[in-house]
Computed example of a mutant assay.
Amino acid sequence: MLLCPLINAASTMQFFVDTADLDEIREASDMGILDGVTTNPSLVKEQGNVDFHEHVFAICEIVDGDVSAEVTATDFDGMMEEGRRLHQIHENVVVKIPLIKDGIKALRALDEEDIETNCTLCFSPTQATLAAKAGADYISPFIGRIDDISSDGIGLVEEIVQIYDTHDFDTDVLAASIRHPTHVKRAALAGADVATMPFETLLNLLEHPLTDRGLERFLADWEEYKDARKAEAGLA
């Protein structure tokens, strides 16, 4: 039976947006609750013909927090070369490394060079354990994609949190592939350090029909109150 995660009372869950859209990042930042950004090659592709390094720099200038930028090489030397180049873009850049054999090797080497890393495409607790032992700063379990194959994405987050707490790993658990507000809620309850989500999902966290109904009622009552005051003043 899985035990409840031991959550550090001093920690605060962080919210990242999973996008490369500068307008979305600006709007999320203006809300005052944005802690960072995650990107990947697919998200950058959606922005059209942009210079990748310049675009990552532009993101870093908007948000005061970690910005994950992913390597595209799959061999050790290639990942190291790309990782060092990404690191030079901005002090906020965190290098995303895929969870493969050469990726584990690159995580260790980049850690020894004091380059922060986010180990991505995690789908099992054993993968997450290897990434933590290699010195990853973040591990990104893809909960939505696991749910897609009728497995339990949040259960994976719970297991990783328990393993990291039990063995005192410093790696932060970054819940990724979040699809809806329930994923965010359950990731928070599971003890994830970070939840990264599409901008639309971030906005959906605000929505509740009773909030809308209550605000509509309050505003209607306020208008009735003002009309009554005006009428009373007119009679006087």
Rank of each mutant, 00 (worst) to 15 (best):
I149N: 04
P98A: 13
P41A: 00
E113C: 11
D165N: 14
V184R: 05
E216D: 12
R108M: 06
T211D: 04
N8Q: 10
K230I: 14
D114R: 10
A192I: 03
V67W: 00
T129L: 01
V50M: 07
M31E: 09
G234Y: 09
E159A: 14
F16D: 05
A192P: 08
G234E: 15
D51W: 06
K105V: 04
L203P: 00
N118S: 14
T129E: 02
M79H: 05
T196G: 07
F142C: 10
S29Q: 14
I100H: 06
G234N: 01
T171G: 02
L215F: 06
A228G: 13
G65I: 10
N204Y: 12
A175G: 10
D30I: 06
A220R: 01
C60N: 12
D137M: 14
F169Q: 03
I149L: 05
Y225P: 03
D165P: 00
V71W: 00
P209W: 06
S140L: 04
L202N: 00
L174D: 01
Y225I: 05
S11C: 11
A73K: 04
D221Q: 12
C122P: 00
D147Y: 12
G135Y: 03
I97F: 10
P41C: 03
Y164T: 03
D66W: 10
L22H: 08
A187W: 06
N204F: 12
S151L: 14
V95P: 04
R213C: 09
D35W: 10
S150T: 02
P5E: 04
L203W: 00
L202F: 13
F142G: 03
L203Y: 03
L6C: 08
N40I: 02
H90Y: 07
V94S: 06
E112K: 14
T74I: 13
V93H: 04
A188V: 07
A188R: 08
L6Q: 14
H180K: 15
L174K: 09
P181E: 12
E224A: 15
F169A: 06
A20S: 11
Y225E: 12
D111I: 05
R229I: 14
F142W: 05
E81D: 08
E112S: 15
L34A: 09
G135F: 08
E216I: 09
H167L: 14
